[in-house]
Write a protein that binds this DNA or RNA. Structure first.
Length: 614
RNA sequence: GCGCCCGUAGCUCAAUUGGAUAGAGCAUCGGUCUUCGGAACCGAGGGUUGCAGGUUCGAGCCCUGCCGGGCGCACCA
């Protein structure tokens, strides 16, 4: 017996132990606890803020004491007395003598239990991470670029965060379905259609299809949206306004025709789409991001009429000012699902998408990794879906902030356009190459040839861009800075990639077979506190992933990996590994190997590559 | 006007969702070591968490009111 360690990890096992303790206290009438309160209470078992308090602490005695009118320390004392009686407790933890302060119960994991956990993890494909209790089917909707316009810096967050969450949830044991909900059917396509019909450049299209489509999109958008004074800056657009009065209406009319199946517009759409798809696929390939499905807005087009009719038949949708609208309590503006001119809106598509996903995939959850500016939209869509009868699925808007430039303003080029994603990746790789070269020079050359340097620069450059985004709490805006993200110290991709190369380099350099290290089955002993500190950190990988899922925040994982790298550095700096002997050497080699495996796996789940030499 | 989000060290960010002395990196200053990959390690200074109240054993986190910033609010996505 391992006290449930392999199924739940230390924290999970301890939470179950405390649940038993609380149930017993409740049954004895010491404190009344309703079953539905239990999850929140046992979550009060967590890692200590400071190692001097032990490894885990439980704080629920203090809140429970208040309601039962007893002294917090008395309740804590009673809980401590009960701990012994719970199966598995004494195998894993040392018994605390008494509560600390107002009623903290501090717990220390037995060294032997840590050793067993590390021994088990080092040869385990899951690295000791317990699979989630109660796996679910989770749809992740992310990236979702608009195919009519080039991908820009704004798409990086959704793509990178979504990709990472999918990998993490999947490793946890959930069934994940990733779906790229392409914007391939909206008004922006009406702009391209109108532009193509009136001001196209066939030659340019033949050479660079998406370049020409992008030009048309930008041009027509200016024509439609720009204020008179802005038009002065765009003579070409001004000329079009002059020549074609009523362009705005004409653009919308093209969209309506597309939506109603006009053969000419459909044919153009079908002609343009392949080039648009190739363009974005090239970027995904470079980011190493892929999707299980790419069902764009157009996929749901045949269902939209039915969505509106269904909502109307249930009395949810009504006619208002010529449009079809869903009025919801608590919102001033209704959710519009059909325009007065007959065209459908993205709310309509979003509702059809929920319906389709539920019908075909039966998900427990749908996550939308989308810009925070759309939070009201999603609130209304989710509320409408629920009223419509699709309330069983848990829809979550995983929102994130805006990418800002060094000046704190939204990240734009000097001309005021959004920064193209591809150019951004190129610059990141170029700068990484400079870092790689200067590092090689300072060491007097390192034997890397051009192609391997190129590979390292690509891995480090792309990794830096992704990591900088993932390392930041997604809810806040973030300042994009190449200088910061490419630093070699601190919480950056390069530092983490270097950490992996350094850890794993030990084995190659010393000619040690890692498989033998894993299979040696030598009982681990921790003679030095730095060995123990590293070992217990290694056992918390699963807890970290659990916490990532709780709030869909990859930065929880980056922070923990960085902490692990730091704990490892302290260990490695102070204690010889290869030069050690006997059990000491065996113990330290296992710790190094597992550190390398976990850092590598962690970066993999962030979508970040590693290199052997850098 | 209504609604949502944000305000933490000089700068960029954390803070286990109400827990213990608010932590990192950069920058500044000091120290270690005959390099198992020094792109290292150890340490110091630096904070009235925008302001003022409130709730309680305990508040950066919850409530109220201000100040400052961002975003959204009927036919774009």
């Amino acid at each position: 017996m391992d006290g449930g360690l392999q199924r739940f990890g230390f924290r999970g096992a301890l939470r179950r132990i405390f649940q038993t303790v609380l149930e017993r206290l409740s049954a004895e009438g010491a404190v009344a606890i309703a079953p539905e309160e239990m999850p929140a209470l046992i979550e009060q078992v967590r890692e200590t803020a400071d190692p001097k308090f032990g490894d885990y602490s439980a704080t629920m005695a203090m809140s429970l004491a208040k309601r039962s009118g007893r002294k917090p320390r008395d309740v804590a004392m009673e809980m401590i007395a009960t701990l012994d009686c719970v199966a598995g407790f004494s195998e894993l933890f040392e018994k605390p003598s008494e509560p600390v302060g107002p009623g903290f119960i501090n717990l220390r994991v037995r060294d032997e239990a840590i050793a067993r956990a590390v021994e088990q993890a080092v040869g385990d494909p899951r690295l000791g991470v317990a699979p989630v209790v109660g796996p679910q089917t989770i749809v992740l909707d992310y990236s979702s670029p608009n195919v009519a316009k080039p991908m820009h810096v704004g798409h990086i967050r959704s793509t990178v965060i979504g990709d990472s969450l999918a990998k993490i949830l999947s490793f946890r044991g959930h069934r994940t379905i990733t779906d790229n909900h392409l914007g391939d059917w909206g008004t922006q396509f009406g702009m391209i259609l109108w532009g193509w019909k009136h001001v196209r450049n066939e030659q340019a299209f033949a050479l660079d299809p998406t370049g020409e489509l992008g030009r048309l999109y930008r041009l027509v958008r200016v024509v439609v949206d720009a204020k008179p004074e802005e038009l002065e800056k765009y003579p070409e657009a001004a000329a079009i306004v002059e020549k074609y009065p009523g362009v705005a209406e004409a653009v919308l009319a093209e969209t309506v025709k597309l939506h109603q199946g006009d053969p000419e517009n459909i044919a153009m759409w079908e002609r343009f789409m392949p080039a648009c798809r190739l363009e974005i696929d090239r970027i995904y390939a470079r980011l190493h991001v892929s999707f299980d499905h790419t069902l764009g807005e157009s996929f749901y087009q045949p269902m939209l009429q039915g969505v509106v009719e269904s909502l109307a038949s249930k009395g949810l949708a009504t006619q208002s000012r010529g449009a079809t609208a869903v009025f919801l309590d608590g919102y001033e503006a209704p959710l519009l699902i059909r325009k007065a001119d007959g065209a459908f809106l993205y709310a309509t598509t979003d509702l059809a998408t929920i319906q389709w996903r539920i019908d075909h995939w039966k998900p427990d959850r749908i996550l939308y990794v989308v810009d925070h500016r759309q939070s009201q939209h999603f609130q209304q869509v989710f509320a409408t879906a629920k009223a419509w009868g699709y309330g069983d699925v848990k829809c979550v808007h995983v929102a994130f902030g805006t990418v800002l430039g060094d000046d704190g303003r939204p990240f734009k080029t000097r001309a005021g356009d959004a920064v193209g994603l591809e150019a951004l990746l190129d610059e990141g790789v170029d700068r990484a190459m400079q870092v790689v070269n200067s590092g090689a020079e300072s060491r007097g050359g390192d034997g890397m040839n051009d192609s391997s340097r190129k590979h390292v620069a690509e891995t480090v450059g792309i990794g830096a861009i992704k990591y900088a985004d993932l390392a930041q709490n997604r809810t806040t805006d973030y300042v994009f800075s190449f200088d910061k993200m490419l630093q070699l110290t601190g919480n950056t991709a390069a530092y983490m990639q270097y950490a992996v190369a350094r850890v794993e380099g030990i084995f190659a350099k010393a000619g040690i077979d890692r498989e033998l290290v894993r299979q040696a089955k030598v009982p681990l002993r921790f003679a030095d506190p730095r060995e123990r500190a590293l070992a217990i950190t290694l056992t918390r990988f699963g807890e970290t992933l659990e916490d990532v899922e709780a709030d869909y925040r990859p930065n929880v994982l980056t922070a923990w990996l960085y902490e692990l790298a730091g704990v490892y550095s302290t260990f490695y700096d102070a204690l010889p590994v290869v030069k050690a002997e006997g059990d000491e050497r065996a113990t330290r080699l296992v710790l190094c190997d597992l550190t390398g495996q976990i850092l590598r796996k962690g970066l993999e789940m962030l979508g970040i590559g590693v290199v052997e030499k850098m």
